[in-house]
Structure formats: structure tokens, C-alpha cells
Design a protein around this nucleic acid. Structure first.
Lengths: 183, 183
DNA sequence: CCCGTATGAGACATTCCTGTCTCACGTGCG
DNA sequence: CGCACGTGAGACAGGAATGTCTCATACGGG
């Protein structure tokens, strides 16, 4: 009977990513609830986006924790991260795209911490000689966001199987598209 | 005196990518023109998005032509493509993100042709043994879109230098982040 | 069983956006 | 100079979206 708040947010993210001008009515329909109920849970569009931020932030932090980024090789940590973050990929795609992460001129504070942890992973990989250094850690972080978003959309559109999400993203980011003699 | 139509469209794309719910008034302000003038050039929001589609389509097709995708190695063709498409990266980021490319259920016809040409490049690279085959050509195409968008945003935010755009994207896509002994 | 709780449907006033119009101003050209 | 053209600023009505409200209904616990 009770509405699944997180599920509503996920539907909203999926819709808003593809149609940023969607109205509250459309969001409600997409989530399968009435506009009245949507308003009971989220005071307005701003509150809805805020809630999306919060949920995305929490899920990303949880994924970062579960991925144990400082254990093992940076390669393996990155693979774990992509796998752990997959459930939040849709939310992430929305948040990365939308200005939601920016307040004023600088990035959302909580988001900056996520950025930092990811960048730190790439830096560790570079220090340990696992990652090349001509591609900056900051760029690798941005690229990871971009690939996760692209992966989320590709899965939604049926262009990539959900089961391949982790492999496609992690292997492309780590090893690139070049064919190699030795694995 | 006369308004630069393409410049208005580029400003609109940059704004709409980050704030999909922006109003015509905000678009006009961002482009540095009055709302009246914006309306004189684009009948309404739909017409504006249509014009964005057209411009993006034209620039991407031009980039594809100039990149001569079927000449030389697939690696080099990809590098040329990324370089040629950089001026259109902002537009592309908007079009990839927004539902603009979808009409009904299937992708915009003109866009499907661009997709095909890019995918064909990756397939050629796979046939010639340049690209690995465990990452599908369709995914590599999607990933290229994602990386171009991420690159456009990173440049806009000053996180990556404009001059590094081509290298960061092409090298990451081709070679990945892994450090190698032999180049 | 009955009551509390949460939802869906719809009405409503208000606010905001849109699309169009008019008028004044500045620029370029003949 | 005088004219044509394009623009900025603002007013305006119409419409769409928002936010709030009421009422009926369905479910679930006590």
C-alpha cells in the first residue's frame, strides 16, 4: 500500500535524465503514483531533486565503502567499484548530467568527497605503476562518470545487457579498446 | 548587430544540458539576447530543440566526413574523429543526454546514420584485428558518446584543458588506463 | 470487526511560462 | 541625412503547471 519512495526516485531519475523539462504530472505517471501522492512525499520539484541528490549520494557512498578501494590492486578495486555502483548508475547519470551537483559555483560538498575518493583511487594506481600518468586522475574520474552514464543508458535502451555492464565499463576503462597479444 | 544564430544555439545547448528545465527567458539571458529576439529566430521551445538537433546533426556529419573514417588504421581514424568532433562536443552532449534523439520509440533517423558510421568504424577495427572483440562495437560507440560528453563538461568546468580534449578521449578509448611497457 | 493510515481522483486559486504585440532605439546603407 | 532593418524592453492575454484542498476508497493492524 505504502509507496516505495526510493522506487519513485529511481523512476523520476530515469525520466528526468531523458526529458529534463518533464512536469510533476509526468514524473508521477512515470512512477505509477498520483500527483497528490508525489506531492505528499516531495514538496515540489526542488525537493524532488534534493531527494534525488541525497539518495544518489548515499548509494554512491555505500558503493565506495563496499568496493574497499584501498584493498588489493587498483585494477581490482576499480572492477569492484563499477560492480557496486551499477544499481545507482541511473541516479548517477541524472546527477552527473543535471546541474544538481552544483550549488552556486562550486560542486556540492558531499559530491566533492565522492570525487576525491575516486580520484584518489586513480592516483594510487598511478603511484603503483598500474595506470599511465599521461591521463590525469581527474580526467579518469570524469571519464568513469561518463562511462557509467553511457552504460546506464545503453542498458535501459537494450543496447547492452545488464550483465555486461561491469565488464564493458571496467575493461574499457582499464584496458581500452586496443587488442593485445598477451592478456 | 545581427544575432549569431549558431552561437545562440551553442549557448542554449550548454545551458539546457545542465538545467533541462530552463525557461526560454533563461535561455535568452544565457545567449545574451532578449526573449523577443529569441522568439523571432525560434518559434518556441520545440523549434529551438529542433534547431539544436539540426545543427548538431550537420556538425557531426561534417566531422565524420572530415575524419575520413575509412582511411588508414581504425586507430588513426578514431583520433581524427575525436579531433574533428570537438567543436560540436557541447551540442553532442546535449543531444545524447536529452530525449531529443528519440522520436516515438526509435532513434531519430539522421542520428541512426551517424550511429551506423561510428559503429562501422569500430567493426572495421575489430575485423582488422586492431580492436578487441569482447567489447561490442555498439558499446564502443556508446562509450565514445559518453566520453565526448564527459570531456565537453570537463573542459567547460576547467577540469581538463581544451587542448587535451582529443588526447584524453582518444587515448583512453583506444588504449585504456593501463600502463604498458611497450607503447 | 472497526479504525487509522495512505492513496487516487479531482476541484481550485495562484503562479509561472509562453507567444504575440507595440514602441523606441541604434546601426548600416543608400 | 533619411530610411530600412533588426534588436531590446515591456505590456498583455491565454494557457499550462504548481501547490493545496477535499472526499471517497482500499488496505492492515489492533
Amino acid at each position: 500500500m505504502s509507496v516505495d519512495r526510493d522506487q519513485v526516485l529511481r523512476s523520476a531519475a530515469a525520466l528526468l535524465t531523458r526529458k529534463g523539462s518533464a512536469t510533476m504530472d509526468e514524473v508521477a505517471k512515470a512512477a505509477g503514483v498520483s500527483r497528490a501522492t508525489l506531492h505528499r512525499h516531495f514538496a515540489g520539484r526542488d525537493a524532488l531533486v534534493r531527494a534525488l541528490e541525497d539518495l544518489g549520494l548515499r548509494e554512491c557512498l555505500a558503493a565506495l565503502d563496499d568496493a574497499r578501494l584501498d584493498e588489493g590492486t587498483a585494477h581490482d578495486a576499480l572492477r569492484r567499484l563499477v560492480g557496486e555502483i551499477q544499481p545507482a548508475a541511473g541516479l548517477l547519470a541524472f546527477l552527473v548530467t543535471e546541474n544538481a551537483l552544483f550549488e552556486g559555483e562550486s560542486r556540492h560538498e558531499g559530491w566533492a568527497r565522492i570525487d576525491d575518493r575516486m580520484t584518489a583511487l586513480f592516483r594510487r594506481g598511478q603511484r603503483d605503476g598500474e595506470f599511465r600518468i599521461d591521463l590525469t586522475a581527474v580526467w579518469l574520474t570524469e571519464a568513469l562518470y561518463g562511462l557509467i552514464s553511457a552504460g546506464a543508458w545503453a542498458v535501459l535502451d537494450g543496447r547492452v545487457a545488464a550483465n555486461d555492464f561491469r565488464h564493458m565499463i571496467a575493461e574499457l576503462l582499464i584496458g581500452g579498446a586496443r587488442r593485445r597479444e598477451e592478456p
